[in-house]
Amino acid sequence: MAGTATQKAGTTEPTRRDFIVVAAGAFGAVGAAAALWPFIDQMNPSEDVLALSSTEVDLSQIEVGQSLTVLWRGKPVFVRHRTKAEIEAAEKDDNADLKDPQRDEDRVQKPEWLVLVGVCTHLGCVPLGEQGEYHGWFCPCHGSVYDTSGRIRKGPAPKNLAVPQYTFLTDTRIRIG
């Protein structure tokens, strides 16, 4: 009884058993995490999928008035170096009656460069460039007509050509994705 007289009522000193229980629990948690890690890690995308998630485009080889089509995530992407007349036409058409209203400046980061996913929003065809009455893109399959900003103007397509996420790395290089 002499040892218990100095202790406060209701408290006990940690014992060796308490230490063993805590150490065993920690060891078990670390072991479970180590066993689960390979299963969690295999859910990450593979390197070939990550390689397709973005692509870089050298803009220095595209003259004013020309387009380049690159493949990104298995889809064609149109990169167009627009002329002054195309930019003016696109900005003028901001006030037109559009099915899917979007201003030209909301679709481009720099007015002279237009980047669009080249898939018609009607049934997934690939439109032809510099065609149609708005001198943008024309989908011959069902007659959808897009303007010089990739906005739908006529035909069955419900939406504008999509603008992918892209970043200017330098003045002559972009990364799509």
Score class of each variant (00 low, 15 high):
170 T>Q: 06
2 A>I: 13
65 G>L: 04
78 F>Q: 02
176 I>Y: 07
156 P>R: 04
120 C>M: 05
68 L>D: 03
82 R>G: 02
42 Q>G: 02
162 A>H: 09
154 K>Q: 11
8 K>I: 07
71 L>M: 13
139 C>Y: 08
88 E>T: 10
122 H>I: 13
165 Q>T: 11
173 R>F: 01
159 K>V: 02
125 C>K: 05
125 C>P: 07
156 P>I: 07
29 A>S: 11
19 F>V: 12
61 Q>T: 14
29 A>G: 09
112 E>R: 15
144 S>C: 09
151 R>L: 10
168 F>K: 00
159 K>T: 10
151 R>S: 12
159 K>S: 15
26 A>G: 15
88 E>N: 09
43 M>C: 01
36 L>S: 06
91 E>D: 05
73 R>I: 00
169 L>Y: 00
171 D>M: 06
176 I>A: 08
118 G>T: 03
101 P>M: 08
34 A>E: 12
107 R>E: 07
10 G>N: 10
126 V>N: 11
89 A>H: 09
112 E>G: 08
84 K>Y: 01
37 W>M: 08
77 V>L: 02
17 R>T: 14
2 A>K: 15
124 G>K: 03
16 R>D: 07
57 V>R: 03
157 A>F: 09
18 D>E: 12
60 S>G: 10
61 Q>P: 01
148 T>N: 06
129 G>E: 10
154 K>W: 00
151 R>V: 08
115 V>W: 05
76 P>Q: 05
65 G>R: 08
100 D>N: 08
102 Q>V: 02
117 V>K: 02
58 D>M: 07
50 L>S: 12
76 P>A: 04
116 L>R: 11
81 H>Y: 12
161 L>V: 04
177 G>I: 12
85 A>V: 14
174 I>G: 00
113 W>F: 11
51 A>C: 01
57 V>M: 07
